[in-house]
Amino acid sequence: MFLRNKAAVVGLVVFSLIVLVTIFGPGLYGISANKMVAKPFLGPGSELAPLLGTDYLGRDILAGIIGGGRATLFVAAVAAAMTMTIGIVVGSLAGYFGGWIDALLMRFTEIFQVMPGLLFSMVVIFLLGPGTRNETLAIGLTLWPLAARLARAEFLRLRELEYVKAARAIGCSDLRIMFRTILPNAMPPLLVSATLTVVIAILFHSGLAFLGMVDVNTISWGSMLGKNRGYTLTAWWMVFFPGIAIVITGLSISLVGDGLQDAFNPKLRGR
C-alpha cells in the first residue's frame, strides 16, 4: 500500500539519503565545516570557489551543509522519541482510566499547551544552559501535548471495543491491556504523528540554532542561517543553500508521513 504511493517512496528515499550523508558525508567529503578553504564571500561558480561558495570566514558552505545536519537530526530524533514516549504514557493513562485521572492529566497537558512552545524551550535552555542534552530536553518537554491528546483519543475509542472487554473478562491486568492489547491498535495514527513531530522538532532546533540559543561550537543548518543572515543582501548563497537543506529534509519526512496516513486509512486517500 505504502509502496504504491510514489510521493511517499520518493520522500523515503530522499530522507534515507540525507541520513546516510549526515552519517558518512563528512568523512567522505573530507573538508571540515569549520575550516577556511578559500577567500570569504565567494559565490558559487566564481573562480577557486567550492561548489556552493564560501561564507564570511571563507568556510565551504557545502561542507557546512554536509556536516551541519548531524546536530539537528540527532536532537530532533531523540526529542521526537521523548515527545512520543511522554505523550503516549500521559495520553494512555488519561484515556484508559478516565475519570479524575483523565481530568487531572488533561489539565496538566493544557498548561504546556498554552505556553508558546518556542518561548518555553528558550526559557528551558536559558535556565539549564545549551548543549545537546538540554536542547533535546527543551524540545521534548515542549512538543508532547499533541501526542498525549492523540493517544488519549485513541485509548478512549479503543477501550470500549469487544476485544478489550474480552481481555478484561479473562482477567488481564490493566498494564497488559493498555500496552499489549490497546497500544498496538493505537499505533497507526501515533506513527503518523511521530513523523510530524520529527519535522516540528527539526524546525524547532533550527529556530533555536538560528537565534543562537544552542551550543555555538556546533555547526547546524539553523546556525548557518543565523550567522550568515547579516550578509544576505550581498551574499544570498550563504543562507539560501542551508535553508534548502532544512526544507528538503522536512518535506521528505512529511511525504513519508502522508504516505503512512494514506496506507493506514485508505478512506482518506488524496486529502
Binding site: L203, G243, L251
Partner: peptide
C-alpha cells in the same frame, strides 16, 4: 502546502527580504 509546512519561518522571511527588499 507540504512545502510551506516544512519551510522554517525565518528562512522564508530572509528569502523575502533578499527578493522583495534587496
Amino acid at each position: 502546502s507540504l512545502v510551506g509546512f516544512s519551510t522554517p519561518v525565518f528562512y522564508s522571511a530572509i528569502m523575502f527580504i533578499v527578493v522583495f527588499a534587496a
